[in-house]
Design a protein around this nucleic acid. Structure first.
Length: 590
RNA sequence: GCAGCCGUAGCUCAGCUGGAUAGAGUAUUUGACUACGAAUCAAAGGGUCGCAGGUUCGACUCCUGCCGGUUGCGCCA
């Protein structure tokens, strides 16, 4: 999204200002804004060389001098800010060492009082709509759908955190041939009654059975009859009356119940549910109107728009039998989003197989005169495959979402939580709740830590391992900090003195905490979750390292105890907030 | 055929608009718990960054061409 940051972190800002002053003091005319300087600051690769690095390459180009020379010239004029203790030239870089005292007073205090999390990160009050989760009714939600759900949810949270006016919407497919197939089997083939519970999942099984049967009978004498019956069902659904229409209304609710259950598990809420069935008729009206206006053309009995000049082929909008397609509905839906909801940035989280489809739709929107079509963005992501190939409800080789969840919760309970139950330290409710949180964290982190363009091969055994770069690793960090805090807060009566934090592990942790809001803003801007996941994992590693090397309860002095505890708490607050941005809860204990 | 995406350690992946000695996890080997919680930490080995050119003071990163994999390309959703 084309959105401007309002601020960078306090430390970078301070350094950038002092750099600018030093550069000006040299009397050079430089075309570098404070923002540019701030942007080119980065964390140094090695703590011995410095903590925050400024590369002098851009300046070198402008001044036509060697980078190391410029670095030392600036260094001489530099007056270091409060959060910095020292600046040092290392080759072409000007490196800054942070001052624990200044950093603690100026920055960590804003973490501890949580004012850091209330900053508005963008100078923009445009409205963003993020459409994600487009599941079909009459089918089962499976792990393939989870990527979309986890990703979309995280993006909504990131955008809201950054201060954007964000609407989350879902677009379930409650009509079409898959529905007809399901109802066909239900009416003509299924002999058992619907169960009292979990009707949505049962319906999904019916759909799979229907597909299998129709596939089997292809090429036999039953094929024609089957097709006739399906067509009749579709017609009846379209006419909005008759027994199949009533059956549709009833069964549709079963599926929606299942969706709501899954959404509740995932802790996602939508501001608006758009159903395919509600835009269908209107979309046809609209497109036919466009045809009358001469915006669209008829070709081989069908209506559409020729996009050859944009190398996008022909976008078909009305089939020769007079019915619409996906594109038809997406054009109408976009119109509603623009006109009724007044959205400025219109984001679609949909898998990358639909890339061509959205290119066509956006182009059609542009050609029929929607200025905002340029603010439509298809956020692509690659599919989730199984080790032996693609997953599909038709093939029936899916792993239903709620199956994955229960398997994961069972593993967590037997491998980790059972011991707390055995020794009587936890109640059964606590075990259940924590198992849910951890399974949730494992799945959400697993889905959002991989780059959107890279496919995920889902291997259940791998996903059940909760060591290393996983959600539970991060949750464990928080649980540890929470436990520390409970045990030691009463002992931490001395005043915090940040200048006591001089060990490598302490400094490295502090330096990492600086960039949290930058990472969040950059993720929101790029609509990516991976950088936040990497950040949190690195933060977790630094904390665990600090934890192992720097005793808190047995610190040498009471002041050091208070200060280390304050650092741990800062880390805990950032971790908790960061996890919440990917939709993950931080358990109090685990 | 055309287009998009992917190709970095045995395996799974990071590497931001080109910049400091290519990084993690996992697996393997080896240390550290009668505990501020070992779901952890410390350490070792392991890579011609698919191949070949080009741009640049400098390329995993940008450009071109190949190779391998994958997904799309008018009456499906």
């Amino acid at each position: 999204m084309d959105i401007k940051n309002t601020q960078y972190n306090l430390v970078y800002n301070q350094i950038a200002k002092s750099l600018e002053e030093a550069i000006n003091a040299l009397g050079n005319e430089i075309d570098l804004s404070i923002e540019d300087i701030s942007k080119s600051l980065s964390i140094a690769p090695n703590m011995k060389m410095g903590h925050i690095a400024f590369g002098c390459f851009q300046l070198a180009k402008q001044l036509k001098k060697a980078p190391p020379q410029i670095a030392s010239e600036i260094c001489e004029k530099l007056v270091v800010p409060n959060t910095v203790s020292e600046a040092k030239v290392v080759g072409p870089y000007l490196n800054f060492f942070i001052s624990p005292k200044g950093l603690g007073e100026d920055y960590l205090s804003t973490v501890l009082d949580e004012s850091l999390f209330k900053q508005k990160l963008f100078a923009d009050d445009s409205r963003v709509m993020i459409e994600y989760s487009q599941p079909n009714t009459h089918k089962v939600l499976h792990v393939g759908h989870m990527r979309n759900l986890c990703l979309g949810n995280a993006l909504v949270r990131l955008c809201r955190y950054s201060g954007l006016d964000t609407l989350a919407v879902t677009y379930p497919g409650d009509m079409g041939t898959h529905v007809a197939k399901c109802l066909w089997y239900l009416k003509y083939k299924e002999t058992s009654e619907a169960p009292k519970e979990n009707k949505g999942a049962w319906l999904g099984e019916i759909y799979a059975k229907s597909n299998a049967l129709l596939e089997d009978e292809k090429g036999t004498d039953k094929e024609d009859k089957n097709r006739e019956q399906l067509t009749a069902i579709l017609k009846e659904l379209h006419s909005e009356q008759g027994p199949f229409y009533d059956l549709w209304k009833e069964t549709r609710e079963w599926s929606i119940e299942l969706m709501k259950e899954s959404y509740q598990w995932a802790d996602v809420e939508f501001d608006r549910w758009f159903f395919e069935s509600e835009v269908d008729a209107k979309s046809l009206e609209y497109v036919n109107e466009l045809y009358k206006q001469g915006v669209l053309v008829k070709d081989q009995g069908a209506i559409g728009m020729n996009l050859e000049e944009d190398k996008l082929g022909f976008c078909l909008l009305v089939k020769s039998d007079g019915t619409g397609l996906y594109s038809t509905k997406d054009v109408e839906l976009a119109k509603v989003k623009f006109e009724e909801f007044n959205v400025d940035h219109n984001v679609y989280v949909v898998d990358n197989r639909q890339a061509f489809h959205f290119k066509q739709v956006f182009k059609v929107l542009e050609k029929v005169g929607f200025e905002k079509s340029k603010n439509c963005f298809h956020l692509e992501y690659a599919m989730v495959d199984l080790p032996d190939g693609a997953m599909s409800s038709r093939k029936g080789n899916i792993i239903p979402l709620l199956d994955l969840v229960s398997q994961m919760e069972e593993t967590i309970k037997t491998n980790y939580l059972q011991k707390y139950l055995d020794d009587g330290s936890w109640t059964k409710e606590e075990v259940e709740k924590t198992a849910t949180q951890i399974a949730n964290g494992a799945i959400k982190y697993g889905m959002t830590k991989i780059d959107n363009n890279r496919k995920i091969v889902f291997d259940m055994n791998e996903w059940l391992k909760l060591d290393g770069d996983t959600g539970p690793y991060l949750q464990y960090v928080y649980a540890r900090i929470n436990s520390l805090s409970n045990k030691l807060s009463s002992q931490a009566t001395s005043a915090v003195d940040w200048s006591l934090l001089t060990k490598d592990q302490e400094v490295a942790l502090m330096v990492k905490l600086i960039t949290f809001n930058d990472i969040a803003a950059s993720c929101a801007k790029q609509l990516k979750t991976i950088n936040l996941c990497s950040y949190l994992f690195e933060l977790g590693k630094l904390f665990n390292s600090f934890y192992a090397e720097c005793p808190i309860g047995k610190a040498e002095t009471p002041e050091l105890l208070s200060t280390r505890l304050a650092l741990a708490k800062s880390c805990g607050l950032i971790m908790k907030k960061g996890l919440s941005l990917i939709g993950i809860e931080a358990p109090e204990k685990m």
